[in-house]
Write a protein that binds this DNA or RNA. Structure first.
Lengths: 210, 210
DNA sequence: TCTCGATTTAAACAAATGATTAAATCAATA
DNA sequence: TATTGATTTAATCATTTGTTTAAATCGAGA
């Protein structure tokens, strides 16, 4: 039984991994279950045997992507570090993750928007987010004048803009700048250093116009 | 004849406009020609009568979107303004356009990536871009120490990150911050002011570590 | 070895989809 | 009014797509 379960789990996991790669690259609507079956060296009936339907398979893939996507942010929230350290940590972790998973942010944004069956909106992403230690820390720093005053959502948008856009726009950047992969990676490194410099000097400005 | 041509043009234009709305919202693969025909109060045969195929209709829509998307950037490039004025101009114009066309950036990025038939790569977006007056101006300012030194592509990525991400991530922002449309619009206004402040103080720093 | 449940496969089905056909309608003009 | 070409429509076609069925294969335990 242990062996059966093992084989089962690995077949199922293999299909899920293949499905993830294709869904992430071509989107839900652009992917057929035959694409997945073929790439996984199996057949469409087996997909439905393990996952019941294309949509249920997709939901699993999407939820996993969402978890990975938010992992570094959630991780950041409740650690015993300064705000500045946490933000630097977030940038480093996100760049590492996104360099290996360039397509994830665009995939998630596109599916949230084009999704009509609303299962995404039921995932309750906002849970306990704004009440976390991080945002209390931030508020405190703002009150003390150690940090520029703004709403939490503004802060998050400002930071994530500078992290994620360069990944979401990868195809266009490579196109208009006529880059190869090596040049793109070099851009990533330069960009990462630059946004730390810019964000830190903006967020932790030398207090005067508090 | 003039009347025939007029009616023709308006029917064709009406279909194109409806198609654009649906393609932009649901993506190429997620859109059926029957979706479009129904929304345009006509039938699938008429779509093919005017546009020959779903793909040819899509190409027209996509090219138009691309033109609009780059309009403010191209407009900026060769005007008689200072670098700082041009960048402020770009931010203002893009925010105006994107507020009315929130879905365009995500649409374009997604289609560039999931597109397999490569017609996009043949559109030669890079033409004369890097040789424009704007980048000569920028280079000059950098040499003079009026502006922080960086590659042109870095500068563009830095600016566009801060403009476009807030639009591309709209569905997620509204979801995790539990915003309504009014709150989102308020966020846009605050963000626009903020990024001008941040970018200008970073790009046009008080010269010292030139 | 035989049995039985789990896994895998080939084949088929119904619905959806992009495209086409052929006929109907319209509108200008001879 | 009759003709002609442009436009619009309903119906149909062939293929693709998600799903299901039924049979085959596998592997552990009796």
């Amino acid at each position: 039984m242990s062996k059966v379960a093992q084989v089962t789990a690995s077949t199922e996991e293999h299909i899920r991994a293949v499905a993830k790669r294709i869904f992430v690259s071509k989107g839900y609507a652009g992917t057929t279950i035959r694409d997945i079956a073929e790439a996984a060296n199996t057949n469409v009936a087996l997909l439905n045997y393990y996952f019941r339907s294309k949509e249920k398979l997709f939901v699993q893939v999407f939820e996993e992507s969402l978890r990975e996507f938010f992992a570094s942010m959630l991780n950041m929230l409740n650690q015993e570090l300064t705000v500045r350290e946490k933000i630097e940590n977030l940038i480093d972790r996100d760049f590492d993750f996104l360099t290996q998973n360039t397509e994830i942010p665009l995939f998630i944004m596109h599916e949230i928007r084009s999704n009509e069956s609303n299962f995404i909106k039921e995932m309750a992403l906002h849970n306990h987010f704004w009440e976390s230690y991080f945002f209390r820390q931030v508020n405190e720093a703002m009150v003390k004048g150690e940090m520029r005053k703004m709403e939490s959502i503004e802060l998050i948008v400002l930071i994530l803009s500078n992290i994620q856009f360069v990944f979401m726009a990868k195809p266009m950047i490579m196109l208009i700048a006529q880059m190869d992969d090596a040049a793109y990676l070099a851009l990533l490194q330069a960009h990462k250093i630059r946004i730390k410099e810019m964000l830190f000097s903006y967020l932790f400005f030398k207090q005067e116009n508090l």
